[in-house]
Each structure stands twice: as structure tokens, then as C-alpha cells.
């Protein structure tokens, strides 16, 4: 079974070193829980893992292959959920979801995905009328609408009510039971049994007093 791993990652943002020497490996069915204070680079790490950012040092490997060797393949195997929900105000909830699922080209299951996050009743409501929490649920429904092996979730529970957080935990558990992997950054309690914690607090590099580019 393929291994997803990071070796000695260095990350720099805006001329500042965010973290250095970060390594982990994540087997099938595994979960990684990123913790750390604000500004320690949880979001940056997720963007690195998605391939949106390039590390200044180190490597991210899937099955021993660097992810930037075949960026298209890497994109096809992951779902990335950032701070933004990518919901178009003039499209209905269903249209929004259907577009993203169709773009990924796999057998899409729109209805069950909407149903899981209790959006079925809102399927025909345009995005602009949905609340922030409903936007978030619609974004989460993308995870279920088309399958992907790796989920990268940045504060997935922001704006969610208690029931929806439970639904999210349920979806993650089911994803992992099927051999899926998940990397989550969250401040809120999220029920993920057996999740590997990874604290970024200890990985902040010492401030460099010398000249940097």
C-alpha cells in the first residue's frame, strides 16, 4: 500500500521561515492532526501537501514519488478544503456541488453527499441565500460527492453546528475505514480515534539574525 510522507520540509512565507525539518508518514487509513499556535504554519503545511505551495527544502512523497513529478495525478487523488468554500452565489447548492464533482470526472454521488450533511432540503436554494455554516457544509459535501484518497482539511469545522461536526467526524471515520487518509488542522475538538498528533510549535526555526534574501 502506498505511503504518503514528508521528509524534512522547510517552509518560508513572506521572507519568514515558518517551520523547518518537518517529517511525517501517513499510511492508508491514517489520520494526522495538526496542532500549533496561530502562525506556526498549519495552513501552509496543508497547502504544501496539496501542491499549491512549493517547499524551500525537503520533499513530499506519495509512494516514493515526489508529488510535483506528476501534479495532475496528485491533484486527482486529493480533496483540499481551505478557508474558502468555493460556493457561487448564483448557482444552487446542487449546481455548485455537481460542477466540482463533474470536473473530477469520477462517478459522482451528489444526492448522498447532500443528504449526509443535511442539505437535501436546500438543494435548489441559490448559494447567496445559504448561511456561512451551510456554505461550509456544502464545501464538505464535495469530499463525499467524488472519491479521493487523501483529504486535506483546514479548520473544517469552522461555523458548523454541533450535529454537523458529528457528521464530519462520521464522514472522516468512514473515509479512513475505506483506506482513505486525512490531514486535519483544527482548533476545535474533532472525534478522530487513533489520529496521529503533529505539533508545529516545536518546529519553528530559530530566528535568523543574519542576512536573508
Amino acid at each position: 500500500m502506498a505511503l504518503f510522507e514528508a521528509r524534512n520540509l522547510d517552509c518560508r512565507r513572506g521572507g519568514r521561515d515558518v517551520f523547518a525539518g518537518l517529517s511525517f508518514s501517513l499510511p492508508a487509513g491514517g489520520a494526522l492532526l495538526l496542532t500549533g499556535a496561530n502562525g506556526t504554519g498549519k495552513s501552509s503545511l496543508l497547502r504544501l501537501l496539496a501542491g499549491l505551495l512549493r517547499p524551500v527544502g525537503g520533499a513530499i512523497l506519495w509512494d516514493g514519488q515526489p508529488i510535483d513529478a506528476e501534479p495532475g495525478d496528485h491533484a486527482a487523488r486529493l480533496h483540499y478544503l481551505g478557508h474558502l468554500d468555493a460556493v457561487k452565489p448564483v448557482l444552487s447548492a446542487k449546481e455548485n456541488l455537481r460542477f466540482w464533482a463533474a470536473l473530477r470526472g469520477r462517478a459522482a454521488s451528489i444526492e448522498p453527499a447532500l443528504d449526509h450533511f443535511a442539505l437535501s432540503a436546500l438543494a435548489d436554494i441559490p448559494g447567496r441565500l445559504l448561511s456561512a455554516g451551510q456554505h461550509r457544509r456544502l464545501a464538505l459535501a464535495r469530499l463525499l460527492a467524488s472519491p479521493a484518497e487523501l483529504w486535506l482539511l483546514d479548520e473544517p469545522s469552522v461555523g458548523l453546528d454541533h450535529a454537523s461536526v458529528g457528521k464530519l467526524a462520521e464522514a472522516i471515520a468512514k473515509h479512513r475505514a475505506g483506506g482513505g487518509r486525512v490531514v486535519v488542522a483544527t482548533h476545535m475538538a474533532l472525534d478522530m480515534p487513533g489520529a496521529e498528533p503533529l505539533s508545529l510549535d516545536a518546529l519553528a526555526p530559530p530566528p535568523l539574525p543574519e542576512m536573508v534574501w
Partner: peptide, 8 residues
Amino acid sequence: EQLLLSPL
């Protein structure tokens, strides 16, 4: 972001 991370 999502477009960039789509297989297209």
C-alpha cells in the same frame, strides 16, 4: 484553488 487542484 479548487480549479487548480482539479485533474483538469
